[in-house]
Nucleic acid binder design. Structure first.
Lengths: 235, 235, 235, 235
DNA sequence: TATGAATGAGCTTTCATTCAT
DNA sequence: GATGAATGAAAGCTCATTCAT
């Protein structure tokens, strides 16, 4: 029975090798630009072998992006393991998403690319299902964090955890994608630091959802966005 | 010189015909799926003629998306023409973006598609430049609206108009893209109404940036998100 | 030596299993359409095992058609066992060929397919030889029947038994192949019942070769093809 | 208008060039063995151009066989132009089919090959329809010859012209195919001259269908198949 | 200006066959 | 004997682009 297990392991290992190679090639040439020949060469395997493990180039691409989701989830979990109060955990999660962008920008792009509905027709049912499984895991984790904050009375009771996650995630993603595309343009030409913008809008959203209890806890740490406003208040 | 002018007009008209045809074909088959033959057939022109007006299929695709930007700008301008106080104008702009999504979803998708940095290598400098011109026009308009609100004392003085636009736009885009991809999934399976989520997060962002003056103006119209919170305040 | 025998038997049994599976797959997909993987799967064996028993896909195909020849011979022999005078035996043989066509049409087609000289290059010498052995057996049987009829004075003495078989067989095969391809077309569209045509031409040939002795024997059973002719004779 | 015509002519000429090249390649390598690259090289054109004129390799193959039908019809018509009484015309037609086999054996084989029903799925509707048109022309011609003989009272009135054609054609085809496959085998090894067999069976069939009128006309020219039989009659 | 025939590189994919285990 | 992972050659076909007319 050891034999069977070993073969299983070897097969899995080979699959990973192919994914390694494919990742490199896709990063370098993009989905359209990459050829299966390129990937086979990078993996030091024959082209036929690639098709033994993956149904099509697109399936393979999606498998690579699934890896990206795994990595993202790993970062999220590692972040959560650091503990902290529920609001801190949300901030950490947001930071973790930033980190994913910074450190795995290629995966970030791939995930964005495969959001294109046009792509979905070119992929096998099985792979799409696997992708959705991975996706669901990430969203499950995210909404868990949000739920904790709501249950603990730090976010308003009426909020749907998933909805909270959605808002923060969408906001971050929209801005990160701009950053990715055109950081230089916005920074140098338009004088906008999108990273700062991102932090700001995230805090706007989060604070809007925080209960008084949470506001008090964070009283001193709060980003006082509007010094002028504070002054107005004093007067 | 009348002749020259007429020729100019005819040329422009033909260009538009090609764009009409290309739009239909791209919508039906996507960038990769569409062939120049398809487009030529739809335009009732020969393939060679297409290349007389556009350098490449990708250039043509980008020209179509530029049309999308024009349409978007038109909607924005029409909205602004309705007048209203600066905050109302911002809300209207946000609604106008929603309308663009609802009524020109195909263009919305195309714009998203071309955000992919991978595409940019495949397009001529000229077309990219033209695209940026169109883009800049839209952003110029948007930041103008924001600037009005700041200058009028409705949004906090420290804010950068473009940054405000960026935040609202990114947030909307992120959520609209989810909506486009998976409205059914989020609604029926996860019980989330992303349209509501979108309005909510937009109001969170906007209100976070509004001055007391604006808050008072909108006092009665404000979405009281947290009834419990209000009650807490009363007690 | 019992062990050896058992192994021999098992090997033969496995070969037959493979042929069973191959027959099904070839019928369903044709030679070109069938893959060795299909056959291996149908036989519930590994692909490698198939190659342990057959040198190539084409060899395997030919082995299946050889089975067809065996079946045909079986039908012929069963028919001959029913006895009857020599002319009746020939008629029965002709009917038996029809039966083979009707009940084993797939084999009939395969045999036709392998008549194509183009195929012969793709097959091993051994298998081709085996095929010729089977072929020779059938022709041996057929010419035996014809020889009986000649020796008994029912067919003209100058005839070569094999030649007689050849004529009747070729004639039948030509018409059966038309039938197989296009029965509907000839029947509904052209108003021709090829089965009747087949019987008619066979009787033309056979009667042309029959001696007076045979004609008298069959006097009453003769198909009087031309009533008008008979009438002419009477007058 | 001359321009259009000239282009039309040139296009047709190119089509013919491709057919010339394809014929050579198919003869040398068979359908499966031939590659479109081979054909393109032989035609001194690019592969893409081949696909500009023909939808697929199989379509091209069928177009070549259609040429075979044209050639056959040409031979038939030339033969008929020689005149002669109706029975002679039938004999000449039979000879013409033999000539086609002898002088265009490659086409003969191709026609046989495409009779395989398996092939028909791989061919475009259009080409199949064209093939049927050609086929119908040949059968129309053949049955016309038979009809003349019937109408003139040389073949029995009850016969269907197409059926007569079918019988003679099937019989010839069956034997010619044997001849093509294995002339050597039957001749040297089995002592049978299939060409003689073919003539014999054809005359059997034809004479069986001839009226007394025709028999008298041919009295002296009749092949007295059975000298012994004549002798028997005398005695 | 408009045409559309011609190009040809390049793509994905298949599958018969082998061979180490 | 049986396996099935790996091979890799080969092939059909597409299509953006060009260019002579």
């Amino acid at each position: 029975m050891g034999i069977q297990e070993r073969k299983e392991r070897e097969k899995e290992a080979r699959r990973e090798e192919i994914l390694d190679a494919a990742y490199k090639v896709f990063v370098a040439k993009g989905l359209a630009g990459a050829t299966v020949d390129d990937i086979a060469a990078a993996a030091e395997l024959s082209k036929g072998t690639i098709y033994l493990y993956f149904r099509s180039k697109e399936d393979l691409y999606l498998a690579v992006t699934n890896r990206g989701l795994d990595i993202m989830l790993g970062i999220f979990e590692a972040t959560a393991a650091q503990g902290g109060d529920p609001i801190r955990q949300i901030w950490n999660l947001s930071d973790a998403y930033n980190s994913f962008y910074e450190e795995h920008r290629e995966y970030f792009r791939m995930l964005a690319f495969f959001e294109n509905p046009e792509m979905h027709d070119t992929v096998s049912e099985e792979m799409l299902a696997e992708c959705q499984t991975h996706d669901a895991k990430v969203w499950g984790f995210v909404s868990g964090v949000m739920k904790n904050a709501i249950d603990a009375g730090y976010l308003h009771a009426g909020l749907n955890p998933l909805e909270v996650g959605m808002m923060l995630w969408s906001n971050s993603t929209g801005l990160l994608r701009q950053l990715d595309r055109n950081e230089e343009y916005w920074h140098a030409r338009m004088g906008i630091d999108l990273r700062k913008t991102l932090r700001m809008s995230n805090s706007f959203l989060l604070e809007a959802m925080m209960t008084d209890k949470a506001m008090q806890l964070y009283h001193d740490q709060l980003i006082h966005h509007w010094p002028t406003r504070s002054q107005e208040k004093k007067s």
